[in-house]
Amino acid sequence: MKIGKSNAEHYVWGGTCDGWHLVKQPELSVIHERMPPGTEEVRHYHGQARQFFFVLSGCAELEVDGTVHLLHPQEGCEVAPLVPHQMKNTSGQPVEFLVISHPQTRGDRFEA
């Protein structure tokens, strides 16, 4: 089945950020997310999940274990399990990105 933002399961997080579940399986999660300017997620880590963040549009800051990575379109960064991280949009434009997780992160998120 073909999937995209128009027909994927949608949710809102952080009050103003959007997520669309493109793949929602126990062994794999692919989420398309949108963060408006000036938003950020809570710094956290995952006990089991390995993640890959890949920017589609805009520019994001991904802090991984104290190191800030500035991600431009078509750039990404891997985050290993147990490593604290935080995605931020400090720019003046929305940022859209993919978050790929193996396995999925449901019940596997802990605030750092």
Rank of each mutant, 00 (worst) to 15 (best):
I3K: 13
S6K: 11
S6N: 13
A8R: 05
A8P: 05
E9M: 05
Y11I: 04
Y11N: 10
V12N: 07
V12F: 03
G14C: 01
G14N: 03
G15P: 03
G15F: 00
T16G: 02
C17D: 03
C17G: 04
W20C: 06
H21T: 10
H21K: 11
L22I: 04
V23C: 12
V23Q: 14
K24P: 01
Q25P: 06
P26M: 10
L28T: 10
L28D: 06
S29T: 09
V30Y: 03
R34K: 03
M35T: 03
P36H: 02
T39V: 00
E40C: 13
V42I: 12
R43M: 14
Y45S: 12
H46W: 11
Q48L: 13
Q48M: 14
Q48Y: 15
A49E: 06
R50P: 13
Q51N: 10
Q51E: 12
Q51D: 09
F52Q: 07
L56M: 03
L56A: 02
S57D: 00
S57N: 02
G58Q: 08
G58R: 07
G58C: 05
A60F: 03
E61R: 15
E61T: 14
L62V: 14
L62F: 06
V64G: 11
V64R: 13
V64M: 11
D65H: 08
Q74N: 11
Q74K: 03
E75Y: 06
G76A: 01
G76V: 01
C77Q: 05
E78P: 04
A80G: 00
P81M: 04
V83D: 07
V83A: 04
P84C: 11
H85Y: 02
Q86T: 10
K88F: 04
K88E: 02
N89P: 04
T90N: 08
S91W: 00
G92R: 05
Q93V: 09
Q93Y: 04
Q93D: 07
P94V: 04
P94M: 06
V95C: 01
E96T: 02
F97M: 00
I100D: 01
H102K: 08
Q104D: 09
D108W: 14
